[in-house]
């Protein structure tokens, strides 16, 4: 911390006087103060309010009752659906995203395809919310282009039970930002596989399969799992896309909170806070696991 103060600054210290903290250090703290104030006001404060209210009994005082009431059909159903969709899109998105990263990194596609893929991934991972929902409505909605195409071929998607406003439909839509996110996060790890490892394995008699089985996949596994957990959180906290697609009426944890904001649909404000805090806890745990795994993988791929 004192790196700047190494030069003798006798002016700051009067003989026998008390040492004052060096001026530059106060300046540094002033430099980071706005950051902490802002984070406190707009990130931490609002969350703490929810945490506080979720633990507050009706007439004041501490209670865990709100968390006990989480075991409630509406809440359980929306959490279950959120977790189902998040798990499915995390695993599918993770696998597909990894395959794409493999294809553009070492699979043998030429350089321009890689650039296109990374740029597009940057766009698509941010292309969520209303425009994404619209795009899928125009593709696979009741009058969407693909639906129409199937009809032309004599097959009615919606008669066969398909609907975009379902678990399956939402999964299909979420994958549109999940896969690119996977590509962006996992690509550096795939690039980190050294050619020498492959050659060393071959040199020691391993087949290509054995190389992937014993070296490449184990080396990548922390990154792959970690990023899948990141995808899980990404999907679990997603609100805008589902809201735009279903008008906010689907059974989903984020949508339930949205409804609770607009009007107390749970007929219990305290329970609403507990539902919100439950999400924060799940997200926090997944981000924690993600960073632990990411650190491990960095150590290997350095």
């Amino acid at each position: 911390m004192g790196t700047v103060n190494t030069k003798p600054k006798s002016t700051n210290e009067t003989e026998g006087g008390a040492k004052r903290p060096p001026r530059s250090q106060i300046g540094s703290w002033l430099g980071v103060l706005p950051f902490f104030v802002f984070s406190g006001l707009f990130l931490i404060g609002p969350t703490l309010v929810l945490a506080y209210r979720s633990l507050e009994a009706d007439g004041g005082g501490f209670t865990l009752g709100n968390y006990r009431q989480l075991v409630n059909e509406t809440v359980i159903n929306s959490y279950a659906m959120s977790i189902r969709i998040s798990l499915t899109t995390a695993i599918l998105g993770g696998i597909i995203g990894f395959l794409i990263a493999w294809a553009v990194s070492i699979g043998g596609l030429s350089r321009p395809f890689r650039t296109i893929t990374t740029t597009f991934s940057g766009v698509a991972s941010n292309f969520a919310g209303v425009p994404l929902a619209s795009a899928f409505v125009f593709t696979l909605g009741r009058v969407g282009a693909i639906t129409a195409l199937f009809k032309l071929l004599g097959f009615d998607l919606y008669d066969s039970g398909f609907t975009l406003y379902s678990f399956f439909g939402l999964t299909l839509v979420y994958l549109y930002f999940q896969i690119p996110l996977m590509v962006l996060v996992i690509l550096p790890a795939v690039d980190g596989l050294k050619r020498d490892w492959r050659e060393a394995a071959e040199n020691l008699g391993a087949t290509s399969f054995q190389y992937w089985r014993y070296v490449a996949l184990p080396v990548l596994m922390p990154s792959i799992l970690g990023t899948m957990i990141l995808l899980f959180g990404n999907s679990f906290g997603a609100h805008a896309t589902a809201y735009a697609l279903t008008g906010g009426l689907f059974t989903l944890a984020t949508l339930l909170i949205g409804q609770q904001i607009s009007g107390d649909v749970l007929n219990n404000p305290g329970l609403g806070y507990a539902v919100a805090m439950g999400m924060v806890i799940i997200m926090g745990v997944s981000i924690l696991i993600y960073s632990v795994l990411q650190r491990r993988s960095e150590r290997w791929l350095r």
Partner: peptide, 21 residues
Amino acid sequence: FITLLPFVIPAVVLVFGLIRL
């Protein structure tokens, strides 16, 4: 750690807290 918070707090939870606060 603080810069990770926007990933931990879903937007809908954040706005919920903001409104209550």
